[in-house]
Amino acid sequence: MSVPLTLLGLLERAPSHGYDLKRDYDTFFGVGRSLPFGQVYATLSRLTRDGKVVMDEVSPGDGPERKRYVITEQGATEVSTWLAEPVAPEPHLQSILFTKVVLALMLDRPADAYLDGQRRSHLARMRELTTVKQSGGLIEKMLADHALFHLEADLRWVDATTARLDALRTEIRQVKP
């Protein structure tokens, strides 16, 4: 999650005080992990230094809440580029789940029991997220959905692997140390 680009994006929506920026960030992107003020101001000062944001005095005096941050053309270009760019397709070919299964088979540990346990914890988490979805607003629903679809994908892999465990064991054991 890129905090600088996200804050820039919020600034393109409207010039803001640091305080409002934090509030908007927390509303949309900070569910379960809000952004500390320190990080907001540190990020804004870096963006200012790099010419992506300028400061605009809205009322006389000093103190951070008197200043509004305004996005520059350079900042806006950066936001556009970033928004259009696909993210590297993630799920890595080898996850920790995969490593555990292969090692368990190699070392003659109960891989099926591990997979059953993994399945139970994934489903328990999915139940929690489903409860969140039933009570939350649309933003919470969207976030929970994203997590749910990913957990579901893991679980499908867990099921497929469980079904092929014997064949997998044979193949792995063929490679001698």
Partner: peptide
């Protein structure tokens, strides 16, 4: 067989080869 559907339940059980395993 869909985990997202099962997640609505209070708990899940697994049937394998005609037995309930969880």
């Amino acid at each position: 067989h869909e985990a997202r559907v099962a997640a609505y339940a209070d708990r899940e059980v697994m049937v394998r080869d005609g037995r309930v395993t969880t």
